[in-house]
Write a protein that binds this DNA or RNA. Sequence first.
DNA 1: CTCTCTGCAAATGCTTTGCAAACTC
DNA 2: GAGTTTGCAAAGCATTTGCAGAGAG
Lengths: 143, 143
Amino acid sequence: MAPGRLTAEDLIAGLRCAGLRVTAPRRAVCAVLAAAGRDHLTAADVAARAGAAANLSTVYRTLDALEGLSMVEHVHLGHGAGAYHVGPSAAHHHLVCEVCGRTIDVPIDALQRAIEQVTAPLGFLPDSAHFAIVGRCAECAGA
Amino acid sequence: MAPGRLTAEDLIAGLRCAGLRVTAPRRAVCAVLAAAGRDHLTAADVAARAGAAANLSTVYRTLDALEGLSMVEHVHLGHGAGAYHVGPSAAHHHLVCEVCGRTIDVPIDALQRAIEQVTAPLGFLPDSAHFAIVGRCAECAGA
DNA sequence: CTCTCTGCAAATGCTTTGCAAACTC
DNA sequence: GAGTTTGCAAAGCATTTGCAGAGAG
């Protein structure tokens, strides 16, 4: 298992620790998220993988709760649905190909520095990875 | 009038030039967009300013047509509605405060260079201004 | 036993679409 | 006239919410 990545147990513990109740649907959502690892899942994806264990509404509510605890983040990868993934330390930006829809993760460093250089004089504190950078991937740009 | 900014006539001419028909609702949408200048308007904003001159559906269809001609761009400033503005040369990124919702435009230069540095090795061609950078503005961060 | 959480179904907000009538070229 | 556009209303997503019943602590 990759070091530093949150496990289902970590997520559950976080919920309990925050005084929230640990229920079967929440366990299921946490398990799905942990199993997805670095993948970005939509709420519908999570619900689908959880099967009957969790209703879509409950998935949304649980993701929201986990996000409030900073254990899950959601990003916008395109014009469609938002995507969720574990971690608070998602040290990457998302490049999304507007043609084929593929997502490429890139380390945050260089970008982050450039963004902060621009925003610091304004006093603006960026949460820059929240929205993706759209464009065309190498393959689709070539065509 | 600011130099280089497209006028309503420019937009109309573009439509005609593309073989599309120039109708009253389209004229109204073009006029609203040109009058908005650097402001970002949602489709609903455009429809509201056009009054009875253009139905919301028509506004969407017209914006779509103008976008196809690269005379209008749309950006995503937050979790809500998308926003439209004239120009292909929108040489700025958008910083959106997640607390107060204010939008700050920043020149594209520094950011664009940093983004291209990251994406070039991947062969990825970014259209980086399409999604905003969320965060907190100076005022809201202070509180 | 109390209070939170769940599932369902309905509501919401934004955007798209089908279709007959209106209008441009 | 021929063919594109319009307005309206309805459908389509993603997401949120009200509420009664189920379940956690």
